[in-house]
Amino acid sequence: MIDVDSLIYEYPAKRALDGVTLGVRAQTITAFVGPNGAGKTTLLRCLAALDTPYSGTVRIGGLDTREAPRQIHAQLGYLPDFFGLYDPLSVRRCLIFSARSHALAAGEASAAAERTAEQVGLSDRLDVPAAELSRGLRQRLAIGQAIVHTPKVLLLDEPAAGLDPTARRDLSDLLVTLKRRGMTLVVSSHILAELEDYCDEMMIIEDGRIAGGGALKVREEERATIRLQLASPNDALASFLRQQNGIEVLDVNDIAASFRFSGDVSARADLLRSLVGNGFHVITFAQEAQRLQDLYFAEVKKKGGVSA
């Protein structure tokens, strides 16, 4: 969905992006992480066709940002790190304007505004002026403005900044829902913990480059890491798992296991049914994300140490 090739972006006395090449698959959530000043925001702005790179190409859904910036803007949602709202306008009007400015007809825009308000948890405040919203609610409204036209690609720069824990959880749920509905999301952050819940891949940006040269897998739907826990020990667990097709055991003992499983969700359901059918008292059977922090520092370690 997003293809970047040899991207260079220069400020008058500094090269902010230095030959970035990356690809983002459709219907995934990719995180750009890295220290402040690494080039995350500049990269996001180049992806959003808001800034013109010195050289290199950015293609969104096959369209070049230089050749077709407005077509790209039409199918993009973007939440900047520092954003503003039209304070005197109500939530409803903010959302309707955003929808209308993304080419939705007047009738559609009204329905889209109500649907989006529901998604971001603002449906009870549709007629409240934006100026009267709290910081967290303003963040939700800004996200609502970015998704009201159901863009194909959603770029979010520090989306959880200023949100309370409940709002962060809601945001995480919303992003996963949007992904399931077909959206491709790129999220920039330097707070790893907030990305762990929802991102599939992570790219470490440092000194204007992708550290390690590419994306690190955080969560693989097609080869998921499953965490299994039993209510009581069972010596047969290891041998049972090793006999199953598509399983690569990572860690196992008589009460818990961690393994990679190649199979879709129905195959996963079959495996769980089989475990229960064979007398294993399963209390946990869940897909496990790799800890982003571990991935990040492992990558940093490979490079010979970088201050985090």
Binding site: A48, L50, R70, H73, A74, L76, G77, Y78, P80, F82, F83, G84, L85, Y86, D87, S98, S101, H102, A103, Q145
Partner: peptide
């Protein structure tokens, strides 16, 4: 004013001609 109020990036990303 839109730049000062940080709404201009939303505008630049719209589909308006």
């Amino acid at each position: 004013e839109e730049i000062r109020d940080r709404t201009w990036d939303f505008q630049r990303l719209s589909a308006l001609t």
